[in-house]
């Protein structure tokens, strides 16, 4: 059973999309961004960076909605998101 309805302005609202940039060699592999990304975009990669940590990688990059949570949560200033210019409307 569906308890919610379609928002009245759903046709006008555009979900932004972000492009994730990871500064791999600055990462210390804490995993905060992986744990708290609301869209589960990130995953720790199996590769090592220059310090021997596993930096994250964007496995589901299209799902990013440019919330910038990873950017603010990262203690190493190693991940940030820029807004993708392309426009896309909400479906359903």
């Amino acid at each position: 059973m569906q308890y919610w309805r379609k928002p009245l302005d759903a046709d006008r609202i555009q979900i932004p999309h972000g492009e994730i940039h990871i500064v791999r060699d600055r990462c210390k592999g804490c995993g905060f961004c992986v744990e708290y990304c609301p869209k589960d975009v990130l995953e720790l990669s199996s590769q090592f960076n220059i310090k021997g940590y596993h930096p994250p990688e964007a496995v589901n990059a299209d799902a990013c909605v440019h919330c910038q949570l990873c950017e603010l949560l990262c203690p190493e200033f190693a991940i940030f998101v820029t807004l993708k210019e392309e426009e896309q409307t909400v479906e359903g």
Binding site: G29, G31, E71, L72, P75
Partner: peptide, 13 residues
């Protein structure tokens, strides 16, 4: 700061 230390997050905020 160590890996998983919270001070870096406080600085970015």
């Amino acid at each position: 700061w160590c890996s998983t230390c919270g001070i870096g997050t406080a600085v970015s905020c």
